[in-house]
């Protein structure tokens, strides 16, 4: 375990053998009904979202979906959402708030899409709106990074009361390749950049960015999903104890304390 480098984790996080966002939905929920569209422009297939039951508890679930095969990956834009994806997610979060059910997000993205249409339709604005709205959403939010947690594109679904990562998931402000090409004009030094960026689950836990690392024992098997579901259910029981004001206060403090600076 200790010989695993940061870049090994990056490769593991990107491996196409990992369960996809939709696998978590089917593995954890029953009676799932997918909800499409942002009610403004279109439906972004890079984000799968809807409602379902976790045991007897209704939940809203939002998952970034990379796609299983070449055709699906193209259709889902390799899990790189457009602004309408973030807006669909926000629409469903507000719906969850109205019906007082928790929101569970599964994040697996190299990042929000960088393209003409994404800029034209306000990628920055869409993510900003999610950060703004999620910080005041009056129902519990749990986000699990299950593969790649790529920068703002991941954070747009991760302003949550609890943020967990799978053992081999990564969470980074920039891809190690992008970082290496900016720093050293050499993307092949991604290995070194991955080390410096402190992007592994262990790093995130040490830095206080996440609360928990979920083991990948039997990854993708029914027992794995059962374990993840049990963790979520237990945590929701804890969060049920809080008043809305306490929940929001704790969520505020969760992010408020993040930062290391000199004074």
């Amino acid at each position: 375990m200790n010989n695993v480098t940061a870049y090994d984790r990056v490769k593991a996080a990107r491996a196409n053998t990992r369960p996809l966002g939709s696998d978590y939905i089917t593995g954890i929920l029953s009676n799932f009904i997918e909800m499409h569209g942002d009610r403004a422009y279109s439906d972004d297939a890079a984000i799968v979202a809807g409602i379902g039951l976790m045991g007897r508890r209704p939940v809203t679930v939002i998952a970034i979906e990379k796609g299983r095969n070449a055709k699906e990956r193209t259709q889902r834009n390799f899990g790189a959402p457009h602004p309408e994806g973030y807006r669909k997610a926000l629409r469903l979060m507000k719906q969850a708030e109205k019906f007082n059910r928790p929101v569970i997000c599964f994040v697996d993205t190299s990042g929000a899409f960088c393209g003409f249409g994404a800029e034209e339709r306000g990628q920055g604005s869409a993510i900003a709106q999610n950060l703004f709205e999620m910080s005041g959403l009056r129902v519990p939010i749990i986000t699990i990074l299950v593969g790649e947690g790529g920068s703002g594109g991941a954070l747009g679904l991760a302003v949550a009361d609890r943020v967990w990562m799978l053992e081999n998931a990564i969470y980074s402000v920039i891809s190690p390749e992008g970082c290496a090409s900016i720093l050293w004009k050499d993307a092949s030094r991604a290995n070194q950049a991955a080390q410096s960026l402190k992007l592994t689950a262990q790093d995130a836990l040490h830095l206080g960015v996440i609360e928990r690392i979920l083991p990948e024992h039997c990854l993708g098997k029914p027992s794995f999903f059962a374990a993840v579901r049990a963790e979520i259910e237990n945590e929701l029981l804890q969060l049920d104890q809080l008043s809305v004001e306490e929940l929001l206060q704790q969520r505020y403090e969760r992010f408020r304390k993040m930062g290391t600076y000199d004074e």
Partner: peptide, 23 residues
């Protein structure tokens, strides 16, 4: 954008500032 030399903590500043703006 975010200051990559501070890693993931710089990303968290986006959430931190947004939460303060929300209040």
């Amino acid at each position: 954008g975010a200051r990559m030399q501070e890693g993931i903590i710089s990303l968290m500043q986006m959430a931190k500032t947004s939460a303060a703006i929300r209040r």
